[in-house]
Structure formats: C-alpha cells, structure tokens
C-alpha cells in the first residue's frame, strides 16, 4: 500500500474531507484518499461485482424469474380455468332452469287443456240439464195454460147460464112477467158479445 502521486493529485477534495473529519490520522494504513475514490480498490471491486452480480443475474434469469413467472402464470391459468368452470356450471344451471321452465309451461298448458275440457263438458252437461228442465217446465206450463183455458171456457159457458137465470129473475121482478127464454138468451149473447 502506497500513495501513488497520481492518486494524490486526482482527489485533492477528498483529501480535504479526510482532514476535516480527522481521518487523516488513522487512515495511514490505506492510501490516504477518501475511501470510495480510492482507485486501488477499483479493480478488485469491479471483478467481484462482475462475479457476484453475474452469478446473481444468471440465477435470476434461469431460476427465480421463470419460477415466479410460472407461479403467477399457473395461478392466472387456474383462475381462468375456475372462471371457465364457473361459467360452464352457470350455463348448465341456466339450461336446467330453461328445461324446468319449459316443462312447467307444458304442464301448465296441459292443466289448462284439462281444465277447459272439464269446464266445457260440465257446461255442456249443465246446458243439457237446463234445456231438459226448461222443456219439462214449458211442457207443464203449456198443460197448465190448457187447463186454465179449459176452465175459463167452461166458466164462460157457465156465465151464460147464470146470466140468463139472473136476467130472467131481474126481468120477472121488474115487469112481473117472465121473458121468453129466447129473448134472454139473445140479450145475454149480445151482452157477452159487447163485453
């Protein structure tokens, strides 16, 4: 270890720093310049930097970077795969729902058909029953009307005899003599006609 003149001239500023910080007294074992500017150490530092950093670079390039990259890619792939799987399951679920909806719609339609048929049948039966009842009722009504008409006709027929009797009695009371049966009958008939 010796101070070459070149070094001494090269770093005068560094030498000053030394004195200020009191290093000069104890830096005798080194070259006497500010240590980072001590160029006697440069060759060794560069050599060892090249060796260590070179090794580090190779290790990073060959082992660490591919490994971490692989881990990240693996995870990325796995996530993508899981997403795909989830998508597939969702599609399956959607399909199942669709099938279910379709079946439900079909069942509903079938139920509708059955209900409509049943309703129609019931309606038809009810209509038929009603028609029958109506027919029966109208038959009874017609019979009743006939009966009434017969009674009425009979009553009318009887009215003539009663009116003649009454008229005979009235005439007899009024004029003291009996009117002829023919006159009374004609008068009653005329009144009936007028009525």
């Amino acid at each position: 270890m010796f101070v070459t003149p070149a070094y001494a001239e090269e770093t005068p500023a560094a030498g000053e720093t030394h004195t200020e910080t009191g290093v000069a007294h104890e830096a005798g074992h080194e070259t006497g310049v500010f240590p980072p500017f001590d160029s006697t150490t440069f060759a060794s530092q560069i050599l060892w930097l090249v060796i260590t950093f070179g090794l580090f670079y190779m290790l990073m390039k060959k082992v660490i970077v591919p490994r971490i990259g692989g881990i990240l890619e693996n995870r990325h792939d796995r996530i993508a795969q899981d997403l795909d799987e989830a998508g597939r399951l969702k599609a399956e679920a959607d399909a199942a729902i669709e099938t279910y909806e379709k079946e439900l719609a079909a069942a509903r339609a079938k139920a509708n058909t059955i209900a409509t048929t049943a309703r129609d049948a019931a309606k038809a039966k009810a209509d038929a029953d009603r028609a029958a009842v109506e027919a029966e009722l109208s038959g009874k009504l017609a019979a009743a009307e006939q009966h009434i008409a017969a009674i009425k006709a009979k009553a009318f027929a009887d009215v003539g005899a009663i009116a003649e009797d009454t008229a005979n009695t009235v005439v007899e009371e009024l004029i003291g003599q009996q009117a002829t049966q023919a006159d009374i009958s004609a008068a009653v008939a005329a009144a009936k006609q007028g009525a």
Partner: peptide
C-alpha cells in the same frame, strides 16, 4: 500486478447476492 483481493466489499457483494437469491429461492 493488479490487486484483485477478496475484500470486505467483495464479502458484502457475496452476502447481498446470497441474501437476495436465498430469500427469493
């Protein structure tokens, strides 16, 4: 004639590489 000594600087370069790559590995 050129000084390529293994120094404390070299030692800590080795330590740096060992620590960094050891951790990452």
């Amino acid at each position: 004639g050129i000084d390529f000594s293994f120094t404390n600087a070299s030692l800590f370069m080795v330590a740096t590489v060992a620590a960094a790559s050891g951790f990452l590995y």
